[in-house]
């Protein structure tokens, strides 16, 4: 049985990963605002949220691939959000709610595979759960329920593409490098 305990070192690492991703896609913030301004005149303003969602959901799957134990994805997202809360992010404590939702969203793919697979399959599954859970949350929070069915489908599609590309493909490419550098010891499949 793989370890399920979290030591101090793991906790620091999880929080660091969350914050590092935040620093790297700080550019994502501009991207988000830029997309929003660009898309709003076409009635697609909320789509910026969907298009950048993959970036916000990267830390979780990557933490899971790195530490390979229950809760890693959740902590990766949540501790990162807790860090950002104090690093001058405009959302303050509201970060924690998004971090919580995204943590659960990205954890589920690994839960459904019994925390035994850390490969393409579980990663793809996680991009699906992440898409559905975060979309479900926006259904209420961002009023997606009030949009036309057509727009919702479009947003759902955009969100899946973004999450699949960043939280799926890119995370897999990064973890491939980590595997080859012997940082991730074995990928159990």
């Amino acid at each position: 049985m793989h370890t399920t305990r979290y030591h101090l070192k793991d906790i620091i690492l999880l929080a660091l990963i969350g914050i590092i991703f935040g620093v790297i896609y700080y550019a994502g913030d501009f991207l988000y605002n830029g997309f929003t301004i660009l898309l709003t005149p076409f009635g697609l303003g909320p789509m910026a949220n969907d298009l950048t969602m993959g970036l916000w959901c990267m830390a979780g799957p990557l933490a899971a691939m790195l530490l390979q134990r229950p809760g890693a994805a959740f902590f990766g997202e949540f501790l990162g959000a807790a860090g950002e809360m104090f690093l001058g992010g405009q959302w303050g404590a509201a970060n924690l709610i998004s971090g919580f939702v995204q943590g659960i969203a990205t954890e589920l793919g690994f839960t459904f595979t019994g925390y035994r697979r850390y490969n393409w399959f579980s990663l793809t599954l996680t991009t699906l759960t992440a898409t559905l859970v975060t979309f479900g949350w926006d259904w209420f929070r961002n009023g997606y329920a009030h949009f036309s069915g057509q727009l919702d489908l479009l947003l759902l599609g955009a969100r899946f593409v973004s999450i699949f590309l960043f939280s799926g493909v890119l995370v897999k490419l990064i973890s491939n490098l980590l595997v080859r550098a012997h940082v991730i010891k074995t990928v159990r499949s």
Partner: peptide, 19 residues
């Protein structure tokens, strides 16, 4: 850039050693 696996890879290596 933010889509380059190597950028994250290097950053994570640093993070592991810092942690």
């Amino acid at each position: 850039s933010f889509w380059s696996p190597r950028l994250y890879f290097k950053a994570i290596l640093s993070a592991i050693s810092w942690a």
